[in-house]
Design a protein around this nucleic acid. Sequence first.
DNA 1: CCTTTGACTCACT
DNA 2: CAGTGAGCCAAAG
Length: 124
Amino acid sequence: MHKRDKSAGALPSIQKTNSFFQDVWDVARQIPSGRATSYGAIAAYLGAKSSARMVGWAMNAVHNFPDIPAHRVVNRNGMLSGKAHFSPPERMEQLLKKEGIEVKDDVIVNFKEIFWNPTDELSL
DNA sequence: CCTTTGACTCACT
DNA sequence: CAGTGAGCCAAAG
């Protein structure tokens, strides 16, 4: 080995960048059905509440992982900010409704009630 | 290597 | 009460 093997190939990161991203995916994967969380909540759980944007980046990298329910991750307002990044944008709210989450005008209804806080649930 | 963007959030005006 | 600005960190160009 010389210094850095940046030739990953198919997967861009993952193999070498398993810090923040994998942590985000691990939390997102633990989101129960019918529940939703926010980027800041996950970031806060990871101890990087200031990096809520990075959580979104992690979701983008996870786009190829069907095991990561990115549709359960929304912004602080409960709005489907990332719906535009789904295969069909409508797919996000469709999945949420499918799980029993009511979505109105691209915003999760009763978001506060279905809000799943990893810092509270996983910290237990 | 430096610049720009990006699925956010908080705070101030 | 609503809109705009700045902060944040990392990856892609």
